[in-house]
């Protein structure tokens, strides 16, 4: 007996699973999506829109399903399952990239001069005592001869001047100067971070001072309500509203909601239906 005729008729009932496309499709199987960049046949699109689109879509879907059948397949209680690969399509990130920290004054200077950082040992050898001591800090040699028991008076200097106190004063001055520079660096780096708002270090500092003046003015019995205002005096702006981020702490949000719910529902105390209980009792 020849079954080939029957096979042919059976086959012709179903459409072919092989589809030809000049440009191969791109797939993102994790999303079960296929992207077709081929041009449509314009004449058929115009004359026989519905049928053409249906046919075209069927072919595209067939290609997608062919791809799915190529994936590794596992069998489980639920039936045969194809393991989908990782998603290829990239979704844009939620927030812009963080800004780079602006270089400090020292970093700028070091770059201009070509100074490179090198690690120094923390301990140095003290030749006078023959011991290893920290370079700075507790029990360290600060290199300024603070522990000298004798200081020779320099030539052409006042012999009655106290050289020890002179050194102490000089050190204090150096520290104060360094601290002033440190403050300036902080102000400058803050200003650089806020540069998009068009603020330099000076105007930032000015704003800060004006805010502090405004706050100190309210330190009266009437919170500054009846104080006379000066000409050109700034009005203090109110507090800006700030909301929680959309994706924050899940547990915390749930707890907060439950707490609020407890307050809202707890007032009525609807665990026992008093009305019903009284009606029952009366019967």
């Amino acid at each position: 007996m020849d079954f080939s005729d029957q096979l042919e008729t059976q086959k012709s009932k179903y459409k072919s699973i092989t589809v030809e496309r000049p440009i191969p499709l791109q797939y993102d199987l994790a999303l079960l999506a296929a992207f077709d960049t081929n041009a449509l046949d314009e004449s058929r699109l115009k004359n026989d829109t519905d049928n053409y689109l249906k046919e075209y879509t069927r072919d595209g879907t067939q290609l997608l399903i062919n791809q799915i059948f190529k994936l590794p397949i596992t069998t489980s209680d639920l039936g045969k399952l194809a393991e989908l690969p990782e998603q290829i399509t990239v979704i844009p990130r939620e927030k812009p990239l963080p800004k780079l920290k602006p270089p400090t004054r020292w970093e700028k200077f070091a770059k201009a001069k070509g100074i490179q950082h090198r690690n120094k040992n923390k301990m140095i050898y003290d030749e006078a005592t023959g011991e290893w001591v920290p370079r700075w800090g507790y029990k360290g040699t600060n290199g300024d001869g603070a522990n000298d028991w004798l200081i020779p008076v320099p030539q052409n200097d006042d012999p009655f001047e106290d050289q020890f106190s002179k050194r102490r004063e000089a050190k204090k001055e150096r520290i104060a100067k360094n601290e002033a520079r440190h403050r300036r660096n902080i102000e400058e780096s803050e200003a650089a971070l806020n540069q998009t708002k068009g603020a330099d270090a000076r105007s930032l500092r000015k704003g800060e001072l004006q805010r502090q003046i405004a706050i100190s003015k309210s330190a009266t019995a009437s919170i500054g309500k009846f104080d006379k205002t000066l000409k050109g005096e700034l009005k203090l702006k109110g507090v800006k509203r700030k909301f929680e981020p959309s994706i924050g702490d899940v547990k915390k949000e749930k707890e907060l909601n439950l707490n609020i719910l407890k307050k809202v529902v707890g007032k009525k105390g609807d665990i026992v239906n008093v009305r019903k209980a009284i009606a029952k009792r009366g019967q």
């Binding site: 929680e244 949000e253 749930k254 909601n257 439950l258 609020i260 719910l261 307050k263 809202v264 529902v265």
Partner: peptide, 27 residues
């Protein structure tokens, strides 16, 4: 954005008029 505390309170008060304590099942 998430609701603020005041907003949540107003919202839950209205919702609890219909479903009472069952708001828990939503949260």
């Amino acid at each position: 954005r998430p609701l603020t505390e005041d907003e949540t309170k107003v919202f839950f008060e209205k919702l609890s008029k219909y479903i009472g304590r069952n708001i828990v099942h939503l949260i």
